[in-house]
Simulated assay, not measured.
Amino acid sequence: MSLADGKPIFVNGLVALQKEMLTKEGDSFQHFAEQMAQLIEDFIKSAKVQPGQTVTTAGTATNQTGQTTTKGNIE
C-alpha cells in the first residue's frame, strides 16, 4: 500500500489512541508510548518501495559486493 493510502489508517489509529487515553486512569505513559510506536511502525511498513533501483556490483559470480547508485522511491 502507498503511504498516501496508509495515512488515513494512521490518522484513525491516532484518534482511537487519543480517545482510549481519555479513559485511562493513573500512569499510562508507557502504554501510550508503546501504542504510538506501533502505529508509527505500521505506517512506515505500509510504504511500497518502487522496483528498479540501479546497483553496481564487483567480484566473482559467487561473491558479489555492491551498492545502489540511485535513490529509492517510496510511494
Rank of each mutant, 00 (worst) to 15 (best):
T23G: 01
G6T: 02
D42F: 05
T54A: 15
G59E: 10
P51K: 12
A4V: 11
H31Q: 06
S28E: 05
P8E: 07
T54I: 15
L14G: 04
K48M: 10
I9Q: 06
A4R: 08
I44C: 06
S46P: 01
V49P: 01
V55F: 15
K45S: 13
G72I: 09
Q50L: 14
F43D: 03
A33C: 04
V15G: 02
Q35A: 11
E34F: 12
L39A: 02
L3C: 00
I9R: 11
K71L: 10
F29S: 00
S46R: 05
A58C: 15
K45Q: 08
M21D: 01
M21V: 03
M1F: 08
Q67H: 08
V55M: 15
T23Y: 05
T62P: 07
G52H: 05
Q38E: 11
V55C: 08
K24I: 04
K24V: 05
E41M: 11
S46M: 12
P8I: 08
E34M: 12
N73K: 10
L39H: 01
D5K: 03
V11I: 07
P51Y: 13
Q35D: 07
S28R: 08
A58W: 13
L39G: 00
F10N: 02
T70G: 09
L39P: 00
A16W: 08
G66E: 03
T62H: 14
T70M: 09
L39Q: 04
E25Q: 07
G6R: 02
N73C: 13
Q18F: 15
V49S: 06
A33E: 09
T69R: 06
K7E: 13
Q53R: 14
I44A: 09
I9P: 00
T23V: 05
A16T: 12
Q53H: 11
V49C: 12
M21I: 04
A58G: 14
M21C: 05
F29K: 02
L39R: 03
K48V: 13
Q64C: 09
P51Q: 12
D5W: 04
